[in-house]
Design a protein around this nucleic acid. Structure first.
Lengths: 146, 146
DNA sequence: TTTGAATAGTTGCACAAACAACTATATGCC
DNA sequence: GGCATATAGTTGTTTGTGCAACTATTCAAA
């Protein structure tokens, strides 16, 4: 028997991701309110570069679960904002290595604090073990479909 | 103490909604593969109209968690595809009542089957009680932030 | 060594989202 | 009745996404 535990109406939220939409909107408002002039999508690219910079656009595709054109344009816009730089690889001239500017490095602490704040608001009143289960399920969903 | 159970790196998936992105992409591919020429966003509007048609654009905003311009354009595109019709309300001339065409009524069964199929693939190997917990947590997140 | 396939990245197009500014209509209060 | 305010919907702009088609470079096999 299929794993079909979706009464109509519940199915909808799962597919449309209302929860993550709500989280992203809240975080975007916090960014705007703090005068941080970046989008959530741009932040998601910086997020991975803070962990490791000097990676290729293709690696950013894999890390952020986006296709190549999306990353091209996000990097375009991040470059316009003076937050990253494309540096051609010396070993393989097809590749751009993406590096953070000093300005981007300065953003890390503030934006991560706002992200944690947002998640705390989102998960207020949710017991820790349920959050763990939820994370686990979402990870499996991602692995099943990616 | 704040409800801060996010080690770095887990935070990311929660905010960016990788799981629901994966689900939506998979479902879109199924639509395309079946020759159904609609987007997931258009489907999400039809979804609510199948439950009840003749509602206003504002009611569609609330139901789909979108703003008014988004619904205006989704209804524009659904009208171009001959799937819905705007009918001016007689009682309040500001309001458009949105009705389904016969063509849209025919889409319900097929698309809902593909949606269920997608969710079954997504949740393969996930025990039912964990799915329940996950749904519960996501609902609370939504309620906390909406 | 040359040629064909694979890989990295870009560009064009259609669709969607968020925000601000706008029009038209309705409502409530004096 | 007339005016301020609220509500429903539209339009313009910027940003992001997905797909297809494209260029440039690398790699591998004949």
């Amino acid at each position: 028997m299929p794993n079909n535990q979706f009464k109509k109406g519940e199915l909808y939220s799962f597919i449309t991701g209302k929860a993550s939409t709500a989280i992203a909107r809240r975080l975007q408002k916090k960014f705007n309110g703090a005068g941080l002039n970046i989008t959530i999508e741009q932040w998601s690219v910086l997020y991975h570069l803070w962990k490791q910079e000097g990676i290729s656009q293709q690696e950013l595709c894999n890390a952020t679960f986006r296709d190549k054109p999306s990353i091209t344009r996000l990097v375009d816009n991040l470059e316009k904002l003076n937050l990253v730089k494309r540096v051609p690889s010396e070993h393989d001239r097809r590749i751009n290595m993406i590096y953070l500017t000093k300005q981007a490095q300065k953003l890390q602490e503030d934006t991560m604090a706002l992200a944690e704040e947002t998640l705390n608001e989102a998960l207020e009143t949710v017991p820790a073990d349920k959050v763990d289960t939820c994370k686990e399920v979402l990870q499996i969903v991602y692995d099943n479909l990616k």
